[in-house]
Write a protein that binds this DNA or RNA. Sequence first.
DNA 1: AAGTGGTCTAGACCACATG
DNA 2: ATGTGGTCTAGACCACTTG
Lengths: 247, 247
Amino acid sequence: MRDRISKDRYEPAYAQLAAILRRRIAEGVYPPGEKIPSESAMSKEYGLSLMTVRQAIGVLMEQGLLERIQGSGTFVKPLKLTESRFDLDSLREIFHDPERTQVKVLQINLTRADPKTAEILQLPPHARVILIRRLLLRDGQPVMFHEGHIRCDPRRPVVEAELSLGPLSDLFNGQGTGTAKKGELIVLPALLGEEDAALLNRPVGSPAFRLEYTVYDFDDVPFGWGWFTAPPEVMRLKTKLGLWEER
Amino acid sequence: MRDRISKDRYEPAYAQLAAILRRRIAEGVYPPGEKIPSESAMSKEYGLSLMTVRQAIGVLMEQGLLERIQGSGTFVKPLKLTESRFDLDSLREIFHDPERTQVKVLQINLTRADPKTAEILQLPPHARVILIRRLLLRDGQPVMFHEGHIRCDPRRPVVEAELSLGPLSDLFNGQGTGTAKKGELIVLPALLGEEDAALLNRPVGSPAFRLEYTVYDFDDVPFGWGWFTAPPEVMRLKTKLGLWEER
DNA sequence: AAGTGGTCTAGACCACATG
DNA sequence: ATGTGGTCTAGACCACTTG
């Protein structure tokens, strides 16, 4: 109870309270599964308004440390491996600095849709599509392979951005100014085939991630799909959960 | 401007406003990258308090649809594949119903730590550890393989839960009542080796996920590590981003 | 019935970005 | 200087859970 919120400080009150609660959880004062003091109790104890207390709890909820149960209380959440979340941070680095990243276009064609592409893009068989295959290099070393299929739509100005030699930033850092409304992604384990392995300069049959995507425009029409192939060193799916130092 | 918040309704005002904004984004009224009306403007327009408007925006921010930039405005966020997040929902199903899930213990030993285990668990070479190897079955079909190494600590009552035949729920649905403070996980692509393949009843060399974990107790001492091997059908890493119907 | 979280208001002042 | 989001208050009433 000796913890206080200092008013005259750069750190907002809700953040201070969140830090206090976080520390108490780490010290075992509030063990996993247990209830923490009620919002009104903390409001009085620290001289904060209810909304501020709630904001502090909100912070720790986003971090997966607390759980609110209406009418019953706020509880310390035990670790659940099934609730872990992975993101593609490791790829962000790559696409965010054009200094070290180069793109080598292997192939770019106006061609006819194969059956799978026709199905995914909801096109008649043999409709026209654009096929792109490219290699992503990092400091000159090949790190990722990409194959993409784009609907060939007269209404859309065949998005130069998507064909550009640029750092793919349009696909990964925001679809141009907004052709895409939604997308679907799936990560799969895969083996490097002969071609992939040669391109990426790795042994045939070594394990890699395959990131498949489909993107839809604002009419909910799928306009592109494809995949990236990346070895695990490049695309790390790593996460922490529970109480690590700073978040 | 014809949208209104109806007061007398089961749906909270902030949710109604969030739905309105969501629809406007979907309709292209607020295109990606553009600024939406200011909080005070919406506060006046809909007759809501500022806090309520902020809550609505907060909802859409969590969904990755909006981005607040202090002093500048709130913007519609373009799709960024690198910001997609994957979770282990597919595993949650498995561990949550003991009806269909069985665990078959293949091996359970008090043994000596191998070098890797000693390093990870911060133990002297050849220290005592518990080794568990088990097979997870779903409707009688093998779906997942687990190998775990647990620190053999006299202070801790060798957590029966962890050794139990139970549905592993302690590992995946909350570490008992709270032996674990934090954990680290990494997903890797892998090939099924001879043993794994035989156990899981799959072809040798087929691709699979390997989920490696380490868990720490409240003294920050690592007390267990191990991995799960699962074919992609079992452990789906799939996600959507952008504007799908209901979230 | 009492306690808890969930929603909401009508103000206030501050920090930051932009012109 | 103006407008934006960021924080905060001191109340209020409602919905839910529990004894």
